[in-house]
């Protein structure tokens, strides 16, 4: 291939699962481009941690809801400047509430960021990867996109939609040696789950055969596998990382 840097682009890479994915792909040898929206200081911390570990990373402020900005980012930062080997569509938000009282705005916003945003990144990446005749795309969906979840109609619809997008993209891009897969995390220990009452955590655990919450590192390991050389014959799949909660 060319002597351009081998880049893995991770959306929403400044916190939570995205941060661990970014760090893992950096240790796998990719130069990581991570996007963030609201917390530049968190993004800078991830870059600093990767660099301290001998890796390379850059952070970009990029709103997944802004399609023009996404197109501009690919034009200015990727095209002709990097070999985009990996795209991890991870950025996402929640606006939970029961359906009968869910604000239309909360439905629209979650679909726009979590589904349309992924489409915008996929569309731009497919042009670059198509020319390269190589690429690995990993979409972070969710167990609730497979099972449904009361209070998350918008989020579940977006995550289920992302699975359909994954499979369609896998079929369209297979002829260019681009694989497209999804990783579906179950209940993962994050800042959010740390704040839940013990009783809620216990009721969650009762539904998980492995009887423990997942860690962000578990998701990062799955992404690393799908981005790596051993996964070249896997495309259009949804890899559940959920302790057996959904089979």
């Amino acid at each position: 291939m060319s002597d351009l840097p081998r880049v893995a682009l991770v959306t929403g890479g400044s916190r939570g699962i995205g941060r661990k994915v970014a760090e893992r792909l950096a240790s796998d040898g990719f130069e990581v481009f991570l996007t963030y929206v609201s917390r530049p200081e968190e993004a800078d911390k991830v870059v600093a941690a990767i660099e301290a570990d001998g890796g390379k990373a850059r952070a970009f402020r990029l709103d997944s809801g802004d399609r023009d900005a996404i197109a501009g980012f690919f034009r200015d930062e990727i095209k002709g400047k990097a070999t985009l080997e990996v795209l991890v569509n991870n950025a996402g938000i929640t606006r939970d509430g029961l359906m009968m009282r869910m604000k239309d705005e909360d439905w629209d916003t979650v679909l726009r960021i979590n589904l349309t945003g992924c489409f915008a990144f996929l569309k731009e990446a497919s042009k670059i990867m198509g020319k390269q005749r190589f690429g690995r795309i990993i979409n972070i969906t969710s167990i609730v996109g497979q099972m449904g979840n009361a209070g998350q109609a918008n989020y579940c619809a977006a995550k289920a939609g992302l699975i359909g997008l994954t499979k369609s993209a896998a079929r369209e891009l297979a002829g260019r040696s681009i694989t497209v897969n999804a990783v579906a995390p179950g209940f993962i220990q994050t800042d959010m789950t740390d704040q839940l009452p013990e009783a809620v955590v216990q009721s969650m655990l009762a539904q998980i055969p492995l009887n423990t919450l997942g860690q962000s590192e578990d998701i990062a390991a799955a992404v690393s596998f799908l981005a790596g050389p051993g996964a070249g014959y896997i495309t259009g799949q949804v890899l559940g990382v959920n302790g057996g909660m959904y089979m």
């Binding site: 042009k127 198509g130 020319k131 369209e172 891009l173 002829g175 260019r176």
Partner: peptide, 11 residues
């Protein structure tokens, strides 16, 4: 050419 080739060609 396949359909993807044609699309890329047009683009």
């Amino acid at each position: 050419a396949d359909s993807l080739d044609l699309t890329e060609l047009i683009m």
